[in-house]
Nucleic acid binder design. Structure first.
Lengths: 218, 218
DNA sequence: TGTACATCAGTGAACGCGCGTTCACTGATGTAC
DNA sequence: TGTACATCAGTGAACGCGCGTTCACTGATGTAC
């Protein structure tokens, strides 16, 4: 056991003390700068201030490190979504929209994690717990969808799984097209947040879940 | 001028005759096999059967080749979407759904193009005409959205641009999560096509555009 | 119809570079007694 | 409290490899006259 909070790369002698963490932080930095493809094992070692052989004490190879980053990303993602949902408070519909905002927020504020999770092509099997972590994140949205569905009369309830897949896909689509660092690929008439919120509202209205008519009354 | 249809790499002597095309085909092959990150200039040259210096006669560098692939991808994409829309025939709503199917179809059948277009991180400025080609593809969806919007009474028309962005994002989200070679990341209770069609229907209903109530009547 | 010449699209050898990986090693740490 | 020892997490040198890129070159093609 050791001081687990050796802030950013400062060596304490021969032993690094927290190389595993330092490598992960380095990976995040590098992915943030050059994308998941541009990240190399050697670079991460250099950034952590160790020799290029050192990382092998902690990760089988580059992919193992990436998979670990992705897993952690999903864990943080789950926490963020769960906090946004807040058990459906103050009110399911509003809480549902909060999930959407949290989704985009995460993509924007943690582009490196997001890239490792969704764009690095990491196989979900490459790390024990990665698939589980990804499933956990999705489960938040699924649970929220179920809560919303339960508000409808029993004979007009859409499948909650389908609903959560739709919202998940729409959120990811908006995030990856419009809320990433390489954004500006297309300039929008509104923010990504507004776009997602509007989309989810229209969708929910289509399910009979959100009030209002089509017009401007909001 | 020369026989432009020298099928797949067969040299005809000292001059290749169609190296530019052969390199693009090689790039598509390689991207299809190993993803856009795994594609290298040298590999493309090898696959086309020329020395590693030859590609420089046709492309400034690797990125220029990728950008060209992306541009061509968008051109094919535009054609596919436009054909699916078919000027709104036989009936706008059905034609609109055909666009969605064509979108996923393209992602599935041309994963290499799709990756170059949406996942390779190619800057839209890196090729003259790339941005235009991307805009043209989007314009098909936009035009279709406008046609649908025009079916609504003037005072309850949603902005067509917003509508097309929603459908574009949903389509891309579903394509990139569920309709790619690396799919199986999550197994679905329905096909990607059905998922997208259902999503678009719910969305359109939310706009007041598609008939039916929420229940199972379809 | 032939010849000279400009142009073009290739060659192949060479270079520097950085990556991934292995290896025997060694300094630091923790622990048994 | 001290000492011997096992374990662990690093080093640093070395390797093979493939990539990107440049260079002077040369074979093929097209064209002017």
């Amino acid at each position: 056991m050791r001081w687990s909070d050796d802030s950013s790369g400062g060596r304490r002698g021969y032993h690094h003390g927290n190389l595993r963490e330092a490598l992960i932080r380095a990976a995040l930095d590098l992915i943030g700068q050059k994308g998941p493809a541009g990240f190399t094992f050697a670079d991460a070692a250099r950034m952590a201030g160790v020799s290029s052989a050192a990382p092998y004490r902690h990760f089988r190879d580059r992919d193992a490190l990436l998979a670990d980053v992705a897993r952690r990303g999903f864990e943080l993602f789950t926490t963020a979504l769960d906090r946004a949902w807040n058990d459906g408070r103050p009110e399911p519909l509003r809480a549902f929209e909060n999930i959407g905002r949290a989704f985009l927020d995460f993509a924007r504020k943690e582009p490196a994690y997001y890239a490792a999770m969704f764009e690095a092509g990491v196989a979900l099997e490459s790390d024990p717990g990665l698939r589980q972590a990804a499933d956990d994140a999705f489960a938040v949205l699924r649970k929220a969808s179920e809560t919303l569905c339960a508000l409808l009369p029993r004979d007009s309830r859409p499948p909650a799984l389908m609903m959560s897949l739709h919202v998940w896909a729409l959120s990811h689509g908006i995030a990856s097209l419009f809320a990433r660092p390489d954004a500006g690929r297309r300039k929008l008439p509104m923010s990504a947040d507004e776009l997602l919120e509007a989309g989810v509202l229209v969708y929910l209205r289509g399910l009979g879940l959100a009030g209002g008519t089509t017009g401007g009354s909001r």
